[in-house]
Design a protein around this nucleic acid. Structure first.
Lengths: 257, 257
DNA sequence: TAGTGGTCTAGACCACATC
DNA sequence: ATGTGGTCTAGACCACTAA
């Protein structure tokens, strides 16, 4: 391989970046599903006619972006929301006393409502749709494990979730309730939509009457408002989530580097 | 170099990890100051008696952690809070209308107070001190640029800052006010303390009387409470910052991967 | 034992900044 | 022209996993 180059690659970027793009395209195209293994580095090197080191650098970056997961001795796998470690990858709410950095443990999920609606202007804009396009709307509640066993669980999160209507066609309250695992795992398993990345906008708001009733706080009590826009492969927005969090006993944790 | 190994390295970890540790130690020890360049990869490779590729991997990781900054053709530099790009590296508050992902621009800083105090129990615990140990306390206000030029600036952030007393001995209101640049740059320049990392705990709270007055909101209005613990080299905690943010017109932005 | 990812080396060449 | 980081290769060997 005297002059390494991809056969028909007009763009002028490093080889490993081009490989990375091809791998991303394969992920987006569904050549490898979440949880599956991708070909070994040697195979990929042969396929793309580059050295193993170049493939390695591409895979390294995709692993750093949490699109792939490397496991020594076993292979490289497509990231999924199925594993224990990544259950609540996007939920940054943590009990106050916890020292172990872990996310909130022992949450109960409760689906309040699920309907098919037409996108409002702001929802449409966030999801890249036109106003009036179909969306799926979910409302669900998260309750933290009770202090004593058999004690009452306290509600901590109320989420309003808007999903891209085309991608989540058959979603219903029944299918949601039947599923035991985390929501993003269900989205992968039932609709083939893997969430890769999210952006959140956080504000402090006063609880309105409805929120106050559900979260068992006085009306006007301060709540954390978390607007999350969640993307799948190709940075395509597919979920808008408006959550309000109770932050007595819990907090939103973040690390800055 | 037939059998690559560090002369006296009893631990059993990859070479590049050991190199990384040595580089970190040099940063912590002040061999290279923020903004300065470190030796070239070739020099480091000779010093540590490893190949350039091994040094490269160590430096890559330190650059990923924002401890070093690579500049092609120029060299590798110790990260600093002086550059434009990293001015407000740790401030995640953003104007609502902004599309460009940038942090809040055109902020006015106003120092309200500055005293030497004795650490309370919680401050001491956060900073790794004993209760009663000396700390420096700062209160400062951030005001966003006015809508119209010559219009009134609106207060958006009220920070209470507690600093490790030993490290910030000569800090005074005068020195703070005299300094034009960002606070973390002053800390580097005047006290040799570079902030490497921070952890934040975010809650929604109701404005008390004092906060309401300063931030020009009604008492009881919801505010974002941001508790930041900031670390220097060696993960040593040196600053505890309790901020309350107004979030009408601004929001705390976060990206989840 | 074979296959995977992980580490390390040595050397070539490219892109960028500076003199 | 020189020195820096950036890319790419080829090959050796190690560590882990599974059959």
């Amino acid at each position: 391989m005297s002059t390494p180059s991809l056969s028909a690659a007009p763009s002028f970027s490093p080889l490993y970046q081009q490989i990375k793009g091809l791998l991303k395209a394969s992920l987006q195209g569904g050549e490898w599903k979440p949880g599956e293994s991708i070909p070994s580095e040697i195979e990929l090197a042969q396929r793309f006619r580059v050295s193993q080191g170049t493939v390695r650098k591409a895979v390294d970056e995709l692993a750093a972006e949490n699109l792939l997961v490397r496991r020594q001795g076993k292979g490289t796998f497509v990231a999924t929301h199925a594993e224990e470690e990544t259950q609540y990858r996007f939920l940054r709410l943590t009990p106050d006393e916890t020292e172990g950095e872990g996310p909130v443990g022992g949450l109960q999920r409760h689906l309040v409502d699920c309907r098919r609606l037409r996108a409002t202007v702001d929802v449409a804009r966030a999801l890249g749709l036109k106003p009036g396009d179909p969306v799926v709307w979910l409302r669900r509640l998260l309750l933290s494990a009770p202090a004593q066993p058999d004690g009452p669980a306290t509600p901590v999160v109320l989420d309003d979730i808007y999903l891209h209507g085309q991608l989540f066609k058959g979603l219903s309250a029944e299918r949601m309730s039947a599923y035991k695992g985390p929501m993003y795992r269900l989205f992968e398993a039932e609709f083939g939509v893997h969430m890769t990345r999210a952006e959140e906008k956080i504000r402090a708001v006063a609880a309105d009457a409805a929120q106050a009733a559900v979260l068992q706080v006085p009306q006007g009590a301060p709540l954390l408002s978390v607007d999350r826009l969640c993307f799948t492969y190709g940075d395509k927005p597919v979920e808008l989530r408006r959550g309000v969090y109770r932050t007595e006993g819990h907090h939103y944790r973040n690390v800055l580097m």
